[in-house]
Design a protein around this nucleic acid. Structure first.
Lengths: 367, 367
DNA sequence: CGAGCGTTTTAAAGCGCTTTAAGTTACGAT
DNA sequence: ATCGTAACTTAAAGCGCTTTAAAACGCTCG
């Protein structure tokens, strides 16, 4: 039970050091002015008292909070990674981060409000779903940087990876391995999926495979990936297998397609669902089918998963985002910027040359 | 670009409503005193101006922050779930939550410091790793509630599930299905794993299976689960396969054990790794081996995974934790409490009666 | 030795809101 | 009419820190 020994205040430090609070304040924040002697006295006093400035009070006084607000989807591992990097980037620039998680009962709008209550000086939105218009409106009143998605909203800074290029890399990689029938598992409605899909389509076209291009409905989670596996008519799912998920299987509507030898998924989670379903159905990956994910998430890196994936290089994005915010905050930038980073393909074990079964069970398909 | 139209202050609202700031303040916080006329005037003025109280200032004035600090491991989906529920529980009681993520470069100590800088009135630590002594020390100065782990630290409230009971439920379930050789995949060092292991051992003893009890080294992630699969000498891994992971495989040291027909894993992630490895090696789950996880995480619930697991009922834990905090804060409770909730077994598709291969590929074991 | 000047130090005025103690009002009771 | 009281209001004093403007203090220089 906190027996509140009355946390020491600046005044205590000052009087103990025999100086004014003004000097003490200056010293403690390492600002020029106070002489060496004063400096030392204050520092000593502070140490002895175990003084820690009251953030609330100092924020009120100085008119800044030095706070960057971040909205994120806690259940996204990609966001989790970004957060880590944001945190360190902010640290380095003397900012602190307050995160506002999105939950079932707490949408983006509310999350943002909460951040504003904290007087965050800039909003970093991870993969925001807010419509552009709303983003733009927000940007009129605050500094906002959208991370990870394209945004046509006036005034907002954007930091994102060139997702279309990323998917392109994946496709090229697969083509380089001899694949031609390469399918794309779409993501959830939204600007991110749109861009990736475009990337897929234009890469296929560029490589002369426009005819082989196939987009199946998918989504952003394992479930959707699994559904997509069925819709793809992959080996173990003879065409009769139309209704693995009776209601939801919108993919089935898309009609028949040639069975692909490789699949690029919207993200790692979907890829995972896909993988799981395939393997359980006796399909060998990468022997029978190659799979590429997107995000290069921690899971993809696990030895047991070892998923070829496209990395959005979260560190770079995080740094760029914080940079964007601080430029506005500290350097007075006022024109919005859009930073598009080049994603990287990370080749792992789920992709292999076409028709070259590398695993021993390449043939096991019919129970 | 924020063209700062000078956010309205309480004073603005007050003067527009033609009353004093004192009245305005009272009204806006819904406190008794102001009459109906005043009330309305203030509310109207506030609405027209789009007034929102400056949290920093009000916190400074009233000596409270109404903030609950939460430390969590962002990469843990279980923590993510808890966070959601904490958020809503806090909301209901008029508290706000500030989360302080643990990252590679930001250990628990720092995370806590950051929370204290925010003047959080209570600290909710999710699965804290801090040694008991440190927890106790912290509890001398602050209200702290440890969530999800046992703690022998004076003064700290504890909210946790009876993990030993939980594992017991899993074992009973398996025994009920006819299994006798039930192995336990251990977790990472720490109080949580210890308790679960104990639960396993005593359940086995209670059911007269003490001799069949086997604990293999594991860990808290997929990787570890996969390693454990190898160490378990499961079907497809003939005894020669001793060094699947040359260096790390401490499990190998444990010597031979009878091949289990069921496995209880430390948590869902480990169970997942285990599952993945088994299935890739052609072992049928639950036909050949039953698997039970722990946490009832979102992943376990996915149709494609459908893992039998033990739920720590996060909603209940979250509510209890916030309750514990507010009791101290608002009701003056001063004696520490330990709330132990009963976990629930959620039976899904990875467990089945022993020797009853429900899937078609029950026999495929030898490549 | 005092003016002049750069360097330190500090008194004091807030930051925007809460809260306490002191005032006002309005009324029914006397 | 007068007084007491209940019901509202509000002036003003902070909360703990920052910052500005002014005071103090050396020192050098004429």
């Amino acid at each position: 039970m906190p027996s509140r020994p009355a946390r020491p205040r600046l005044e205590d430090v000052a009087s103990r050091a025999g100086v004014s609070t003004a000097s003490a304040s200056l010293v403690l924040r390492g600002r020029p002015g106070p002489g060496a002697a004063t400096r030392e006295a204050v520092l000593d006093a502070a140490r002895e008292l175990g003084y820690r400035a009251d953030r609330t009070a100092s924020l009120l006084a100085r008119r800044r909070t030095q706070l960057l607000g971040v909205t994120m989807d806690v259940s996204s591992t990609f966001h989790a990674e970004l957060l880590e990097d944001l945190q360190t980037a902010a640290d380095e620039r003397g900012y602190d981060i307050v995160v506002s998680p999105l939950t079932r009962t707490r949408d983006e709008r509310r999350a943002v409000e909460s951040l504003l209550d904290f007087r965050c000086e800039a909003l970093l939105l991870l993969g925001p779903r807010l419509p552009d218009a709303e983003l733009a409106a927000l940007a009129e009143e605050h500094h906002v940087v959208a991370i990870g998605r394209r945004a046509q909203a006036a005034g907002v800074d954007v930091v994102r990876a060139a997702d279309d290029v990323g998917v392109g890399l994946a496709v090229e990689h697969l083509v380089g391995l001899g694949h031609r029938d390469i399918a794309f598992v779409d993501g959830p409605r939204g600007p991110i999926a749109t861009l990736r899909r475009q990337g897929y389509r234009s890469a296929m076209k560029r490589l002369g495979l426009a005819d082989a291009a196939v987009v199946v409905d998918g989504g952003g989670d394992e479930e959707s990936g699994a559904r997509a596996a069925a819709a793809l008519h992959l080996p173990s799912e003879p065409s009769k297998g139309r209704e693995p998920e009776p209601a939801d299987d919108r993919a089935a509507r898309r009609g028949r397609v040639r069975m692909p030898s490789a699949v690029v998924a919207f993200n790692d989670r979907a890829a995972l669902g896909l993988l799981d379903r395939l393997r359980r159905d006796g399909v060998d990956v990468p022997g029978d089918v190659s799979v590429v994910g997107y995000d290069d998430s921690l899971i993809a890196r696990l030895a047991t998963v070892d998923l070829t994936s496209v990395s959005q290089i979260p560190e770079a994005m995080a740094t760029a985002a914080v940079e964007a915010a601080t430029q506005r905050l500290d350097e007075g930038r006022t024109e919005p910027v859009e930073l598009v980073l080049e994603p990287q393909l990370v080749v792992r074990g789920t992709t292999a040359p076409r028709g070259d079964p590398t695993t021993r069970r390449g043939g096991i398909r019919e129970p």
